[in-house]
Design a protein around this nucleic acid. Structure first.
Lengths: 236, 236
DNA sequence: TATAAAATCGACGTTTTATCGGAAAACATC
DNA sequence: GATGTTTTCCGATAAAACGTCGATTTTATA
């Protein structure tokens, strides 16, 4: 779709792999695109204010307890104006996490460029997931504690983005098999579940109880441990 | 609290450990006790009808989309009668999963009696978790996709029960260290997160996409893999 | 600065949640 | 089995939150 720019910044990997990787991340980071763009500057500001307000209120009260009126007030607009932007609270709730998710992907894409192996890239991905949650705790509260598992996110832009989150790991796990440090006889989907599950559980526990105290450290430890475990499965 | 019955059915383990284990599971399985008991039989039946109806409606529509009126209708009572039993929808939602959770603990307690080592008991626990979710999919949908992570379950009977779910694993992990097949230098809480996370992620994926097709098999595979991974950490 | 399109808002209708007082049913006592 | 008491149930109605619409203001553009 977009015009191809550069072939690859990390020469150690076969060029077809590089392009697959880059286009995957390109696609993922740019997925969240609003269907109807706002025409006026003021409106773009309003939209941003709504999203900011919604994030604060949702994170504070939880989605179900939050009132549209509160969010509108927090955004400094009237209730009916909010409805001009989002047709329901649910609609709004599912839109709020998108921009951060895109930002995470972008940030990861930039950082991963210097990593050449799938192993290093996976490690970075898991570590950055935990760290991004720590840095954006309100967003993480919303995403991990209220939205991620919800059934009703189906057929949503958000569901696609969450699935993308998984797709990246699946991609890297399969590359890990090719690189020889992930056991080829294990179901890759199971491996993905194991990796995501471990890290997410850590994040959820932190969001709920603020334990472990240092999420960055704990995330790194968990990620390194998980990958070491995978490597252990091979050398036997 | 309850009069002690039998000391222990599995003699291979030190008796103090056995009693700690049994009393943990006793306590856990019997925790969900309603504060105000209903006096009349009819009322007990009504309460059960409400819980059944709520489970069906919540699982079908999701908690936030469900209407109290629908649940009352499904239970064959008036809306105001429902409020006689639960002071809000949230209140009701948090009560629904409790009985099944207690049933799971009881069922596990019975099955675990024949297992002598912490390793076997942990394996059984993880396998049974996945299998119980498969058997009670409506309940699992509600618990895993809507309630488990929710912040607002705090200070609820339900939160205690969910924490109990974790406590059992923590107990077994610590025993695993004593038995020598879990690395003693790893943070036990991290290990718990890893185990729960992996299995839960599997269950969630199944609830959302019905993949893997055979959850029982996948659960067993995942559980065995996780435990094997822990064992691999020791022999090095 | 005139004009059309876009954005905002207050007023109002609808839906859902929750309360309350009294009727009906179950229970206890004689 | 009549009577008084407690428990359960429900219809009517209040309260709260959601969502719509037409009128008005603001913005972009020529």
């Amino acid at each position: 779709m977009a015009t191809k720019e550069v072939v690859g910044e990390s020469e150690q990997i076969a060029s077809d792999t590089v392009s697959a990787w880059d286009s995957l991340l390109q696609e993922i980071a740019h997925r969240p695109k609003r269907a109807t763009e706002r025409k006026q500057d003021r409106a773009k500001r309003t939209e941003q204010q709504i999203l900011n307000a919604a994030l604060r209120v949702f994170a504070r009260d939880g989605i179900s307890r939050s009132r549209i009126a509160d969010i509108a007030a927090e955004a400094g607009i009237s209730t009916s104006t909010l409805y001009e932007y989002y047709k329901s609270k649910e609609d709004l709730a599912y839109d709020v996490p998108l921009s951060h998710l895109a930002e995470f992907f972008e940030s990861y894409h930039a950082n991963a460029a210097s990593r050449t192996s799938a192993r290093e890239r996976l490690l970075l991905y898991l570590v950055m997931s935990a760290d991004y949650a720590r840095e954006h705790a309100e967003w993480a509260r919303l995403l991990y504690l209220e939205i991620w598992p919800s059934v009703f996110v189906s057929d949503t832009e958000l569901r696609h983005s969450i699935d993308d989150f998984t797709r990246v790991i699946l991609f890297l796990v399969k590359e890990g098999v090719a690189e020889g440090w992930v056991a080829p006889d294990r179901n890759p989907y199971e491996t993905v579940a194991l990796l995501i599950g471990g890290v997410n559980q850590l994040i959820i526990t932190w969001l709920l109880y603020r334990k472990p105290k240092n999420l960055t450290r704990a995330g790194t430890e968990m990620a390194e441990r998980l990958i070491a475990m995978l490597e252990n499965e091979v050398r036997r």
